[in-house]
Design a protein around this nucleic acid. Structure first.
Length: 402
RNA sequence: CGGGGCAUAGUGAAACGGCAUCACGAGUCUUUUGGGAAGAUUUAUUCCUGGUUCGAAUCCAGGUGCCCCGACCA
C-alpha cells in the first residue's frame, strides 16, 4: 500500500472533542472517525487492525472447536419476552415496532441451538459470531472503550452437564489468554473474578487489562496473580488466601459466564428431560483496539504490537524514490505488509506519520544508504544500518541486531 | 439519569454589540527535501429556532450535539 493511495489522512492536531488517549490518537492517525458519541467508523487503517484482532480470535477459537456463524442484529421482541429481558434499559428499541437492536444474543442463539442440537450426539457444541452490538449507554465515553455501537465476539457453548461446561470453560479461558498474549497484552491482562451483571446471578470471570483509562478497579493478589474486581469487595485472595493486594484501574476486554440452565429453561431446551447447560464468552474486539492503544503509545503516537499492526513496515525514501519503489516491491514479494510513503512531503513529516501510525518497523532509503537501509523499531531510539539483502533473506523478527 | 464545561472553514484557534480573522490541511502553479519547508492563488449559511437591537459569532430564551465527573454497564 502506498500512502498516496490511502483513503484517510493524518491530522496535525488532536480532535478537540475527544479527551481519551485512544480516540485522540486513532482519530489523529486516521484509523477511526467519530459519527456521534460512542459511534465510530473504522477507516481502512483501523479496519485492518480490527481484522487482525478478529483473525487472532478466529484462530484461537478454532482450537477449542468453536464454529462461526452470524445472527441478525435486528431482533424481535418475542424472544426477549421469554426471558424477561425486553425491558432492560440497555436495549435500543424501535419505536412502534416490536424489534430491538442486539446487545447480546442468548435469546437468539438458544432457540436456534434448540432447532439443531436434538440428541446427545450433538453435544457439546460451541458457536460464536463477530458482530456489531448496540447498547444504549447512558454515557458513552473513553473513545472505543465504551461505545453505543461496538464490535464484539460472542461465543456460546451448550453442554449436557455442569461438569462438561466446567471443562470447556477452562479451555476457553486458555484460548482467551492466548488471544490477549498475541495482541501484546499478556503482561497487562489479568484473569479476574467478578459479578454476573445481567447474565447470571453467580460469579463470572473477566479479563482485565491494566490502564488508567479503565473504568473498573481490580485487586491483584501479589502472591499468585489472581485478581478480583472490587465490585465484589473481598478481603482475601480466593485462590491462595493472601491479603497482599495491588489495586489497579483496568478495562474489561473479555468476560466469561456460566449461564447454567437459565436460558434453556426460558426456551424449554431439554435433552433427555434435562435442561441444557450453557456458557457464554464475550470479547470486545473494538474495545480491544482501544485498550491496545491506551497501553502502547508514547508522545509521538501509537506503538502497535506486531500481530495487530496494520502494516509490518513503514517505508520512507529521501531523494531515492526509484530505489525505494524497487525495494517496496521486493519486500512485498517476500510477504511483508509494507506501507510506502511515496508522498512529496518533507522527511520530517513522514517520520512523524510513521511514528503516529505505530507501525513496528520504519525503513529509510536515501542516496546515503547505498546497498543498505536504515531501519528502526517503532519503540527504539537508535537507527540501524542493515543490508537490503539481509532483510530480504530472513524474517525481520529474526535479525538479532535490531 | 444527576452535576459541570463547551459549540466559529476539513483540523486547531481569534474576533469590546460594528468589514468574520489567523495557522495548518486540501486544490492549482513554482521552488524545495534527514524530524510537521517557502511563495502565489482558491477554500465559511459562526450548531438550530426564536427574541432584544439601527446592527448579534458576541446579549437573552428554548432546543440539539460533544466532552468531563458521578450513578449504571462488554
Amino acid at each position: 500500500m502506498k500512502v498516496s493511495n490511502l483513503f484517510s489522512k493524518t491530522e496535525k492536531k488532536e480532535p478537540k472533542d475527544e479527551q481519551s488517549l485512544n480516540a485522540k490518537l486513532l482519530i489523529k492517525a486516521g484509523f477511526i472517525d467519530k459519527l456521534s458519541a460512542g459511534i465510530y467508523s473504522y477507516l481502512p487503517l483501523g479496519l485492518k487492525v480490527i481484522q487482525n484482532i478478529e483473525n487472532i480470535v478466529r484462530e484461537e477459537l478454532r482450537k477449542v472447536k468453536a464454529e462461526e456463524l452470524l445472527m441478525p442484529g435486528l431482533l424481535p421482541k418475542h424472544n426477549w419476552e421469554k426471558t424477561g429481558r425486553w425491558e432492560i434499559k440497555e436495549m435500543y428499541k424501535l419505536k412502534e415496532e416490536d424489534f430491538g437492536l442486539g446487545w447480546t444474543h442468548e435469546e437468539i442463539i438458544t432457540p436456534l441451538a434448540k432447532k439443531f442440537l436434538k440428541s446427545e450426539k450433538d453435544f457439546p457444541k460451541s458457536i460464536y459470531q463477530i458482530q456489531t452490538k448496540y447498547r444504549n449507554e447512558k454515557r458513552a465515553k473513553s473513545g472505543l472503550l465504551r461505545g453505543r455501537e461496538f464490535i464484539m465476539k460472542d461465543l456460546y457453548s451448550f453442554h449436557l452437564s455442569e461438569k462438561d461446561l466446567d471443562e470447556y470453560y477452562k479451555e476457553v479461558k486458555i484460548a482467551y489468554a492466548e488471544i490477549f498474549k498475541r495482541c501484546g497484552l499478556k503482561d497487562h491482562t489479568y484473569f479476574t473474578l467478578a459479578g454476573g451483571g445481567a447474565f447470571t446471578k453467580g460469579y463470572s470471570h473477566e479479563f482485565q487489562t491494566i490502564t488508567k483509562a479503565g473504568e473498573d478497579t481490580i485487586l491483584i493478589c501479589q502472591k499468585c496473580g489472581f485478581a478480583i474486581n472490587t465490585e465484589l469487595k473481598k478481603d482475601k485472595c480466593l485462590k491462595c488466601a493472601s491479603t497482599d493486594f495491588r489495586e489497579e484501574k483496568s478495562i474489561e476486554v473479555g468476560n466469561i459466564f456460566k449461564l447454567g440452565t437459565k436460558f434453556a429453561e426460558a426456551f424449554n431446551f431439554k435433552i433427555n428431560e434435562e435442561y441444557v447447560v450453557m456458557g457464554c464468552y464475550g470479547l470486545g474486539i473494538s474495545r480491544l483496539l482501544g485498550a491496545i492503544v491506551e497501553v502502547f503509545n508514547d508522545e509521538n503516537g501509537i506503538i502497535f504490537p506486531k500481530e495487530v499492526a496494520p502494516f509490518d513496515i513503514y517505508l520512507i525514501d529521501i531523494n531515492a524514490r526509484k530505489q525505494a519503489n524497487t525495494f517496496y516491491n521486493e519486500l512485498k514479494e517476500k510477504g511483508y505488509n509494507v506501507l510506502f510513503d511515496d508522498r512529496d512531503k518533507s522527511p520530517g513529516e513522514k517520520f512523524n506519520d510513521a511514528d503516529l501510525l505505530g507501525i513496528p518497523y520504519r525503513i529509510v532509503i536515501s542516496p546515503k544508504t547505498k546497498d543498505a537501509v536504515e531501519i528502526k523499531k517503532r519503540e527504539a531510539k537508535n537507527i540501524k544500518l542493515i543490508k537490503k539483502t539481509l532483510i530480504l533473506e530472513q524474517k525481520l523478527d529474526s535479525i538479532k541486531t535490531l
